[in-house]
Write a protein that binds this DNA or RNA. Structure first.
Lengths: 185, 185
DNA sequence: TTTAGTGTACAGTTTTAACTTTACGTACTT
DNA sequence: AAGTACGTAAAGTTAAAACTGTACACTAAA
């Protein structure tokens, strides 16, 4: 339910303005999370609204189709930025934001970057063994060997980087990052 | 210059295959950096090639227009993933990858996230003062006051998060992150 | 079983972004 | 001064995505 309903128009206007500045700003930078502007707006609205909302309310407030709300909400669910919650007395699904942005940030990395890193690692190690096989095979061909050693070196560097990145991701997942870089009190 | 030129077709094929697996994998996950698949490929090729390359070489190798190479290269330059280098004897621009991926990662955050965080911070503080002004103004209206306190709380939480995020970004920029989470030796 | 309410898959449309072709400005060569 | 090589801006085209409307499956109530 829209929490501004029932106020004077002028009051609604002033509060909305303050909120919308923030909502716009959040939405605009949501592309860093791979999220479209309109879904960013969606999230911003949910962030300020007191209590959970339904797809129909979102559709009405955002002036967009219910289908778009459905897919948008699902994207935000996948990123663990919102939760589906139970509301007795209604058959509609209810959604509300997960208010802990530190957690959102960590989850995002866990979800997106870990997958990418692990995928790249597989490709790197596979190619590394191939390169090394060829090194043995072309051991007497100096020209090729130089190339192969160079490739090996580069792949090794990449692997080192990804191992470091995995440690960073792990620190985010376990919350150890907040020992290293403390939150505000 | 393509570093595989002059080899036997079969040798080129084998080395290329090992490289391409990695290049594909890198390119595929470059969207995390907000980079398109083809620019990711571009980067991957440059990563393995020995020595800097020109726009014409890239165009030929990638099978894409020179204009696309120009814009692609500029994107990578903006993200500090490649450098423009001097080559005597040629009037063409030469480009090569910055091989330190730890640095790439740090730069990316510095460039993209810092800008977003600072933008959001401005919006948040601006709206925060507005909300607080209204709190003083509507001090005797309990219903509105409750709403305003709620909004204030949420904005404060967001500001706290962004301050933490700035510390993380700073740790990346200064390299302090590598004391907290050490690189491989 | 029917009926109404709800979320989503699907197909179609519109908007956006990627890419290409052409053309131009600048700088080097002769 | 004239010609050539180079990188990029501009306009046009093609491919991708965001978004909508409709239809359908599922559930709960009557």
């Amino acid at each position: 339910m829209n929490d501004l309903e029932g106020l004077e128009p002028e009051q609604i206007n002033r509060i909305s303005k303050a909120r919308e500045r923030v909502i716009d700003s959040i939405g605009k930078n949501m592309d860093l999370y791979g999220i479209t502007l309109s879904i960013g707006h969606l999230y911003g609205y949910m962030y300020f609204n007191e209590g959970p909302v339904t797809l129909d309310e979102l559709s009405r407030t955002m002036g967009m189709s219910k289908t778009s709300m459905s897919t948008g909400v699902r994207t935000l669910l996948d990123l663990k930025m919102i939760d589906k919650v139970w509301g007795k007395g209604t058959r509609k699904d209810l959604f509300e934001v997960v208010p802990d942005w530190h957690q959102n940030f960590s989850d995002y990395f866990s979800i997106k970057w870990r997958k990418a890193v692990e995928g790249n690692m597989i490709a790197l190690t596979k190619s590394l063994t191939e390169i090394r096989d060829m090194q043995a095979e072309y051991a007497e061909n100096a020209e090729i060997l130089r190339l192969l050693l160079n490739d090996e070196e580069k792949i090794m560097e990449a692997i080192k980087y990804y191992r470091w990145l995995l440690k960073l991701i792990e620190a985010l997942e376990t919350g150890k990052i907040f020992e290293l870089i403390p939150k505000e009190t």
